[in-house]
Design a protein around this nucleic acid. Sequence first.
DNA 1: CCCTTGACTATCT
DNA 2: GAGATAGCCAAGG
Length: 114
Amino acid sequence: MTNFQNKFDKVVWEIVSSISSGRVMSYGEVARAAGRPRYARMVSKAMSRSVEQLPWYRVVRSNRTLAFEVGSEPYKKQQGLLEKEGVRFVSGKVIPLDSDKAKDLDELLWGPPD
DNA sequence: CCCTTGACTATCT
DNA sequence: GAGATAGCCAAGG
């Protein structure tokens, strides 16, 4: 049995559950953390299989955009949940809380982006 | 079996 | 930076 059905799913859920509020991980990062470097796509499948109680919305693409079609219901839902945790969106890309170090100075000098 | 489908990525234009 | 391309890999038809 290609122990995927249970082991992989379980590990993925644990990893995703461990992502703290206001932070995000990419599908690829979760896959690597689970010890399966090329399983980015399987991560999404594993999550959709567990919708209950999983902060799935903290998982985004490697380029920091959301994985759903822009403007779709799932997209807006995910964006809303993330913004509620303080995550900002700039040009469709998420800006995690911890990357706001030089932000204030940048905005002071250059003004708000987009 | 072969082919298509994704909540994906890295790389090249 | 946006679009195209080629890998990727389990699932389902």
